[in-house]
């Protein structure tokens, strides 16, 4: 059974339909890349998946359980908040919290979440210690073991984005979404971030990556989706979609990347 299943997701802003029925599925441990021209709806898709926008139509299933169905009753704030915990999102612009150190950025959400545990009062100290040591581990995994107490403004863009990835990982999302994680970076810094994502792919993290890095997409993804005008034009393994696309529009788009 697919870990993530999205069926006929639609989203309009005003009278403009930006997502015109998106369906895809993703197996546990797979990496899916999403490519497509500017304005094709990639960011909107990710924002809908993380409930920053509420889809007008569509169904989201996680591990066979429907967590969202636009047809059925409206979700309240608390249900939306809980749904978000299935997923993580890494933004193009990092969005680290500037007033917290790298370590605090990573441990903040887990600490807040720990307050909901029934044994929180009794074991507060141990729980916080566990969270801290786990957060340190995650930061080490993304190569920032020596930057724990740096504030975001004391880190390079690449380092900031790696903290943002660590921050998302700290909540152990079932699927981690990336929105052009390297677009805001100087070219010489993209490698360190892409390497972290590759490493996560090797560790069987389930991921959806919106990217313009075609060589990265073909190297790490199990599947690639090409989007245009709010539709999925083509999807399949990278060798097919990137190597031998069936659709003319895909070919046209990819030609722009041939150097």
């Amino acid at each position: 059974m697919a870990l993530l299943e999205v069926k006929d997701m639609r989203k309009s802003f005003g009278s403009v339909e930006v997502l015109k029925g998106i369906s895809f599925s993703l197996e546990q441990g797979q990496t899916l890349s999403v490519i497509g021209p500017s304005g094709s709806g990639k960011t909107t898709l990710l924002r809908c998946m993380n409930f920053l926008e509420i889809p007008d139509k569509g169904i989201i299933n996680v591990a066979g359980k429907t967590i969202f169905d636009a047809e059925s009753s409206h979700l309240n704030d608390e249900q939306i908040r809980r749904n978000r915990l299935h997923f993580g999102l890494v933004f193009q612009s990092f969005n680290l919290f500037p007033q917290y150190t790298a370590l605090e950025n990573v441990s903040l959400a887990p600490r807040l979440q720990a307050k909901e545990r029934p044994d929180f009062r009794a074991n507060k100290k141990e729980i916080y210690e566990q969270i801290e040591s786990r957060s340190v581990d995650i930061l080490r995994r993304v190569g920032l073991g020596d930057k724990l107490s740096n504030y975001p403004h004391q880190l390079s863009g690449g380092q900031q984005q790696r903290v943002a990835i660590a921050r998302a990982l700290a909540l152990t999302p079932e699927v981690l979404f990336f929105d052009e994680p390297t677009s805001a970076l100087d070219p010489e810094l993209t490698g360190e971030v892409l390497n972290v994502i590759k490493q996560l792919a090797n560790e069987d993290m389930t991921m959806v990556v919106v990217t313009h890095e075609m060589s990265f997409a073909s190297a790490v993804s199990d599947n690639v989706i090409f989007m245009d005008g709010g539709h999925i034009i083509e999807q399949g393994p990278p060798a097919q979609v990137l190597g031998d696309p069936k659709e003319e529009r895909t070919r046209q788009f990819l030609r722009g990347y041939d150097k």
Binding site: N50, F51, R81, L96, F97, A109, A168
Partner: peptide, 23 residues
């Protein structure tokens, strides 16, 4: 305060109150 700060809190499962006071 950039919109992204609030959104980062939201995707981390924070409540509105937590986002206001912590972020």
């Amino acid at each position: 305060v950039p919109k992204g700060q609030r959104e980062a809190g939201q995707v981390l499962g924070m409540t509105n109150t937590q986002i206001f006071f912590r972020v």
